[in-house]
Design a protein around this nucleic acid. Structure first.
Lengths: 352, 352
DNA sequence: GTGAAAGCGCTAACAG
DNA sequence: CTGTTAGCGCTTTCAC
């Protein structure tokens, strides 16, 4: 910020021989001011190259028109798509977004939230890291009176809202589909059970297995992460047990990609040696070979709903009730998990 | 912001019977203040749940420790990777990032830059939209004294810096490789020539063709965009001319994906009917079938260098010289553009 | 080592 | 319709 380059309301006011209050109001289109004065003020402001100072404006008005966002990762199809939607929705509602990335690091998450609080955002949307266990910082947010909405990866904390997809049902439908195809030996690379998405996706898996009276082999349920590395190491672990399931459901699409990598390295074939489906769509799913069927999360809607709910809470700050919004998912079928089991195992149908 | 919940310096000061100046200094670790006082102040601040108010701090100190960023798109492998790197670098240097997305819309880009200016960011990193032609807003930034760095998609404006990859050389090497494989009929889906990346990638293509004395068939050079739709429509146009090149280089990876889609729809085969390579890596390139060779842009470095250069300019605001940094690319070879031409056209080698 | 005074640029509340 | 008076919460001189 160069020292003396800044044009202020006063500069405009002096030029016009009015008070800076008049200028302030005129610039904001306040009905107090006459058409002509407003026009004149705007003209001069433009000529002088006036740029309002939001820091000053916000300090004195005690609102920032800004929503803080904390996500665990940006370069991830799901998050970047949601983020894009968050920005779009905010833009159309005249809100600014201040985005931060915790990089799956709980300590960093805390720092970012503290910064955002210090920047006096009007509200906070957060998707927690995979290692977040401590609630203290969120209690602080609540105490400070800033509306807090968890998105996708949520924490069950009194006074907060949440926007998420139906992880449990979505997973149920995927497993249900696999079972109807004839699979009975089903595994699950499951993330972390401490995070809602890990837990609920596992529960959906369990629901489906129970529904069909199929046993869950504990060796086939592996925890450990939401990323590609985990998909790779998880599958390797599965393989080393010398007893592969027929079908595997992964908690995220990067985990599935890790499986693809491991499968290729091992010289196996999808879907013949191991069939697969995952939670979450991405640009890769469609192009990968074989293309990957999945549970689709409507990222646009997640972002849009989160921001709209936030704005609603900001505007009704004294009276709003926390809400828990669940957005439905749907299945996208591609090449994986699409063949009847006997198609890939013709011998099965020749049984006496 | 709830009215009476805010703890201020004064609250701490009163509690301790010192002045708010002492508290302010203590909190910032100013050497003026004695060890004991500092400790005490920090303790009380913590007990009271004090959260500094950056708006007030920035207003009075006239610095924001904040860098504004404008990108054309977030949900795009290249940008989300660069953004991630920008955030990381900023975080480690104690800067905040305020990111905005222009969505390839020039009017929106202007609005975002104006907001960022009003928020008094200390510097601005921008990657222009594919339709940006007007320089006025950037002149305004320069006049306001805020350092401006263009990243990847740059504009040649006096007083601004730039960080980009060697688009021209990178493309040259890709085409060179294709020619060495035996291709002579080479096409280019080329983006927009008005944007530096479009122009320079075309020039690299031209350089290589010239170097080998190969003619450029104007029907095989198609302009129109940087996205998947353009890849699709561009290839369709190529196909309808009834005279396909053997090899095609696309200006971005989404354009290549569009080509894949068109090729599949037409029942053609890559690389036999048409071979391909693109500028820009992504998570898809590796998994797509056939896997896509490309010119790789080091996204981490782009983000890191941009932020570091920015911080350097902010810290030397009175004396900095605009810089133009070019980051080298490398080629990543996968299944496309990897077979000698006679491998795919065995008849050619059986000529008498 | 500590504090009093002044002010950053703006808006809110009230008067006229 | 326009202007006056008071801050918002903090940092920056500059005295003591």
């Amino acid at each position: 910020m160069n020292k003396r380059l800044q044009i202020t309301l006063d500069d405009i006011a002096k030029q016009l021989n009015v008070s800076k209050v008049t200028v302030s109001k005129a610039l904001r289109g306040h009905p107090d001011i006459s058409k002509e004065t407003t026009q004149l003020v705007k003209k001069v402001a433009h000529e002088l190259g006036y740029t309002p100072n939001y820091m000053a404006r916000n300090l004195s008005s005690k609102r920032s028109n800004t929503i803080g966002v904390v996500v665990p990762k940006i370069a991830h199809f799901f998050f970047s798509a949601v983020i894009e939607s968050i920005y779009d929705t905010a833009f159309h509602n005249n809100y600014e977004i201040i985005l931060t990335a915790s990089q799956e690091n709980a300590a960093r998450e805390i720092k970012h939230i503290e910064s955002l609080l210090a920047m006096r955002v009007d509200g906070l949307i957060v998707s927690i890291t995979q290692e977040t266990r401590d609630h203290a910082i969120f209690e602080k947010v609540i105490k400070s009176g800033v509306p807090l909405i968890f998105m996708d990866r949520i924490l069950d904390i009194q006074g907060t809202s949440s926007v998420a997809v139906n992880d449990r049902e979505g997973t149920f439908h995927a497993i249900d589909h696999a079972i109807k195809l004839g699979y009975t030996k089903i595994g699950h690379l499951a993330g972390y059970p401490e995070i809602n998405i890990g837990l609920n996706r596992f529960l959906g898996f369990e629901d489906a297995m129970k529904q069909y009276g199929l046993p869950i082999n504990p060796d086939w349920v592996i925890y450990g992460g939401f990323g590609e590395e985990f998909g790779y190491s998880g599958f390797m672990k599965l393989y080393q047990s010398k007893n592969l399931p027929e079908f595997i459901f992964t908690v995220t699409y990067p985990v599935a990609l890790g499986v693809y990598a491991a499968v290729e390295e091992l010289g196996l074939k999808i879907p013949d040696d191991i069939d697969i489906m995952c939670f979450g769509n991405s640009d890769v799913n469609r192009f990968i070979s074989p293309s990957l069927s999945c549970v689709n999360q409507p990222t646009d809607k997640l972002g849009k709903v989160s921001v709209e709910l936030m704005i609603d809470q900001i505007k009704n700050i004294e009276s709003f009730e926390p809400q828990h919004i669940v957005i439905p998912t749907d299945l996208i079928f591609r090449e994986t998990c699409s063949k009847k089991k006997f198609d890939s195992y013709p011998k099965a149908s020749s049984r006496p």
